[in-house]
C-alpha cells in the first residue's frame, strides 16, 4: 500500500476530484493548507502597508491506495492539476506500514480496496 499526498492549487481541486472519481479512486481526505512552492510572489497593499504574500492557499489531498492503483492515481492528479505555471504543486508517494478500515476491521490491501462493485452492503444505493 502507498499513501499518495498531493498539494494542488485551490482552483484546481474540483478538477482533480473529478479526475480521481473518473479513475474510480474514491477514498480520500482533503485539507486546506498554506504553502510556498516558488510561485510568483503576490504583492498586496492595504492603505500604506505593502506586503509580499509568501504563502499561498493550497489544498492537500491524501489518498491511501494499493500498489497497482498508484499509477492511475498519480496520472489523474497530474492531468487535472496542471496549469503549467509555477505553483501547480507536488505529488508525494509514501510507503504505508499498516492500514485498517475502521468500520469492518479489514486490514491492509482489503482496507484500501474501493468498494466494488457498487457498494454491495448498501443495498445498491450507489
Amino acid at each position: 500500500m502507498k499513501l499518495v499526498v498531493a498539494v494542488v492549487r485551490t482552483d484546481r481541486v474540483n478538477k482533480v476530484l473529478e479526475a480521481l472519481f473518473r479513475a474510480d479512486i474514491r477514498g480520500l481526505t482533503i485539507t486546506r493548507v498554506q504553502g510556498h512552492g516558488g510561485e510568483l510572489e503576490k504583492v498586496e497593499t492595504y492603505r500604506g502597508t505593502t506586503v509580499k504574500m509568501e504563502l499561498s492557499e493550497k489544498v492537500r489531498i491524501e489518498i491511501g491506495v494499493s500498489d497497482h492503483f498508484v499509477e492511475p492515481t498519480v496520472k489523474a492528479i497530474l492531468g487535472s492539476a496542471r496549469t503549467g505555471d509555477v505553483g501547480d504543486g507536488k505529488i508525494f508517494v509514501l510507503p504505508v506500514e499498516k492500514v485498517w478500515r475502521i468500520r469492518t476491521g479489514e486490514e491492509d490491501q482489503a482496507a484500501v480496496t474501493p468498494l466494488f462493485p457498487a457498494a454491495e452492503e448498501n443495498g445498491g444505493e450507489r
Binding site: Q34, V43, T50
Partner: peptide, 18 residues
Amino acid sequence: HGEEAYTTGEGAVLVLDY
C-alpha cells in the same frame, strides 16, 4: 486590486521599499 477579501495575514512579509 492587490488585495484579498479574506486574508489571514499568515505568510505576509512587510515590504518597506516596494
